[in-house]
Design a protein around this nucleic acid. Structure first.
Length: 418
RNA sequence: CGGGGUGUGGCGCAGUUGGCUAGCGCGCCGCGUUUGGGACGCGGAGGCCGGAGGUUCGAGUCCUCUCACCCCGACCA
């Protein structure tokens, strides 16, 4: 994409009503637009990041054998009444409305109920199990107070996966598989080192649920991490019994602030019993489905990445989710430089490398500042000097030094670090 | 939901004890000079001051109500 044609622009001044680092930088760099408190629109560059995160998650979920669907935003009241979750006293984040004829509907803040109910149409035998589906959906939650930019909104993109199993053992197998897959997702998006499998308060069926917590000051949770074992305990369940049970020693734990980027729940058969969803087992008996659900906050994850890596010059994206791999800064308007930059751009695009091309007639300082602000991993300068040298000037976003490289060297490096 | 704060061109801000045509910077448009870390000159366009009501000869400035936004706390199944 040529920056002269890119729909958004960067800005030097940031809206005064944002204090969180992620919102400030994402707005400044033109990645998102704030519509209202806790509600953000994703612009071309921001959308690319979201889509890159989704792509990684999608690959890992598909590898588990799960299949992608998309559920509805409008939901039926009756289903949620069956599980006691329609009541505002039980769930206080509901957005509710009604149809013209007065029928009550809710806007989806989660999808366990409708999806489990739907399963009664498609699962009737043990032969249909285990099975799982997932979706990327915009969740709507009427939070009393939105905060932390895109990390806690009233409208946000979430990947939720629902797995149905024949019994507790089968459920556990899948549960363990997803746990691994999640760790892999977080490694791939670049936050593996700071993300911990965390024991948190469980549902009705199990003592614990598992959260994936990324260590950052911008987080809302307090967790205690064991750096050697790579696990953590959420403050909400921390006590001597729990530590003993998990084989952890209090004096080896470190208290940190963290943001929950993923969570997994084991509902056992409780949800299916409430909703009346059964299958016929091998012996002919009717049994309730075992449900487990798995969430990753896609847009929150994006916010966490910003918080984790951004520096004083702007955003810093890991290569795996960056809106582009490369930004070409063309300096000067000489014929030779324009031709050289156009050629480089065409070649990179041809190689399938996402490339931003700063072809604007603005001063060098502005181009450098924008490239830094947008956080593109690799910057290539094309100028009269580089044309004369027959090489390109290359600089990593995180580096301070520049290298003179040929296109072949650049391509080699790009593939190697992918 | 409790406490605190803020609403003035697209963005950031100033506007004195009420006073006459509401300013400044960035950005935007035109012309020219510039071009390796956010250039400069000249000339322009753009706001009825969040909204409603009130006080007053006169309201961006005062009063009442209301809406929105931000922060802290509570909440987050």
């Amino acid at each position: 994409m040529r920056l002269s044609e890119l729909f958004t622009k960067t800005t030097k001044t940031v809206p005064a009503d944002e204090t969180s680092k992620n919102a400030k930088l994402l707005i400044q760099a033109g990645f998102v637009h704030k519509e209202m408190a806790g509600v953000y629109a994703y612009l071309p560059l921001g959308l690319r990041v979201v889509e890159n995160i989704k792509r990684i998650i999608r690959e890992e979920m598909n590898a588990l054998g799960s299949q992608e669907i998309i559920m509805t935003s409008l939901q039926r009241k009756e289903l949620w009444e069956k599980t006691g979750r329609w009541d505002d006293a039980a769930v206080d984040v509901w957005f509710k409305s009604e149809l013209k004829n007065g029928t009550a509907v809710g806007f989806g803040w989660s999808h366990e109920e409708p999806i489990t109910n739907m399963m009664s149409n498609y699962i009737s035998s043990y032969r249909d199990l285990p099975t799982s589906v997932y979706q990327f959906q915009t969740k709507l939650r009427n939070e009393v107070r939105a905060k932390s930019g895109i990390m806690r909104g009233r409208e946000f993109v979430m990947k939720d996966l629902y797995a149905y199993s024949r019994n507790a053992e089968e459920l556990q197998d899948f549960y363990d598989g997803v746990t691994e897959a999640y760790l892999k997702v977080f490694r791939r998006v670049g936050i593996g080192d700071s993300t911990y499998l965390t024991f948190a308060s469980g549902g009705a069926f199990t003592q614990f649920s598992h959260e994936f917590q990324t260590v950052t000051e911008a987080g809302e949770d307090t967790i205690y991490i064991d750096e050697d074992k790579r696990i953590a305990v959420n403050q909400e369940v921390l006590n001597d019994d729990v530590l003993k049970q998990l084989g952890l020693q209090r004096d080896r734990l470190k208290e940190v602030k963290a943001a929950e980027v993923g969570n997994i729940f084991n509902f056992g058969s409780a949800k299916a019993e409430q909703l009346g969803v059964y299958f016929t087992d091998e012996d002919g008996s009717e049994k309730p489905l075992f449900l487990s659900s798995y969430g990753i906050g896609v847009t929150r994850l994006m916010g966490v990445v910003v918080e984790l890596f951004a520096d004083e010059r702007g955003l810093v994206w890991p290569q795996s989710i960056a809106p582009a791999q490369v930004i070409i800064d063309r300096l000067g308007e000489s014929r030779a430089t324009i031709v050289a930059a156009d050629e480089l751009y065409a070649k990179l695009v041809e190689q399938g490398i996402e490339t931003l091309y700063d072809d604007r007639d603005v001063r060098p300082g502005e181009k450098f500042a924008d490239a830094d602000l947008m956080g593109i991993p690799l910057r290539i300068v094309v100028s009269d000097k580089t044309v004369e040298a027959g090489k390109y000037e290359v600089k990593k976003r995180t580096a301070t030094d520049v290298k003179m490289q040929s296109l072949d060297d650049i391509l080699k490096d790009l593939v190697a670090t992918e």
